[in-house]
Design a protein around this nucleic acid. Structure first.
Lengths: 197, 197
DNA sequence: ACCTGAACACCGTTCAAGT
DNA sequence: ACCTGAACACCGTTCAAGT
């Protein structure tokens, strides 16, 4: 009866988490599914399209932040939720941010951030510009963070004291919150003052 | 008499500009230099190390912004200069930002930005956090921009009206300046007010 | 110090053909 | 609708050996 598209994507994400992005080959994926490599090209026109579908799925599986009446709380929660979604799978940040940069999808986070920022009283173009700043910060920060996390967990047994930090950290480090807070201050400076939160 | 390291890097950058990052293979580089592939591994322990050296060279070739008494002018000029450096070669933004994320170098821009921000009166840790925000914005923005530039210049003859924009644009688009300005406002909000510029 | 020759263990993609 | 079989045109890296 054959594999479905969703089926293929789910298996690909499992392999991503196990072998990382460089280890995710069409051949390995096909072997895991028990088909020939060429069969994958019936489901996806290229590996890039498969990666784009994986990025969407990883985002869809991420947490959905509870909304808030305070726009800045909401924006912060969205940034934290996005970071959590990226950290949930090995090389998640690299995958999603690359798909985004190549214009192949992963646009929901930007749209949602922009909507939350508009509720602060910003005009749509300004809200989009601010959303772009936040998005690139979250992508770049989390990409770097995930690399360092994996690099240090690679030198685990043979290396420096392993420390209490697990490879898949969820709590936000101080610099992450600080970066988001800085951008929020920038937004406040450009929006009609009305309430403090 | 053999090739020098700098020689190899320079040739690699030429190939990057001509074929793009996916087209830059060790085999192609070796062939262009007139040596065997294996010879490259005498100069660089891996392709990653070659890419790191290329990133440093691309940054070193970039413009050096004139300094300014006004810290915000200086930060803006550094951001613009960094973007220009990345845009100067095909896939420059992807290359440099990836090398940076993998912790293989390309740290000068961050240090320089942090220094300029400190002169606004920010404490070093705050200045570094703000520099991180700017750096990720410039990397992410320019990466996306460069992809779109190349995608549209790929569909040149056969496509929409080519427009006046060349493939290698140097003037900053409005959203780039807007993003930098937003972050500057965020910095101003966290620093003892003294002068306006 | 710098490179050759040869191999190892892989890649993404296409395409005619099958059921 | 979904897959096979086979091929095409590539990859990064290692290593003994040469000069």
């Amino acid at each position: 009866m054959g594999h479905s598209k969703g089926n293929v994507v789910a298996t690909a994400i499992t392999l991503l988490d196990e072998y990382g992005l460089p280890g995710l080959s069409m051949r390995r994926l096909a072997a895991t599914l028990g088909v020939q490599q060429s069969a994958l090209y019936w489901h996806f026109e290229s590996k890039q399209m498969l990666l784009a579908a994986m990025a969407e799925e990883i985002l869809a599986r991420g947490p959905r932040p509870s909304s808030s009446r305070a726009w800045d709380t909401e924006v912060t929660r969205r940034a934290v939720a996005l970071r959590d979604a990226l950290l949930a799978y090995r090389d998640g940040a690299e995958l999603v941010s690359t798909v985004h940069a190549f214009g192949l999808g992963a646009e929901e986070p930007h749209r949602r951030l922009a909507t939350s920022i508009e509720s602060a009283g910003a005009a749509p173009p300004e809200a989009r510009a601010a959303a772009t700043v936040i998005l690139h910060f979250v992508f770049g920060f989390t990409f770097s963070e995930q690399q360092h996390l994996q690099a240090s967990s690679a030198g685990a047994i043979e290396g420096a004291p392993p420390s209490a930090a697990a490879s898949r950290r969820e709590a936000e480090p101080e610099p992450f919150r600080a970066g988001v807070a800085l951008i929020l201050d920038g937004i406040r400076a450009r929006v009609p003052q009305q309430q403090r939160t």
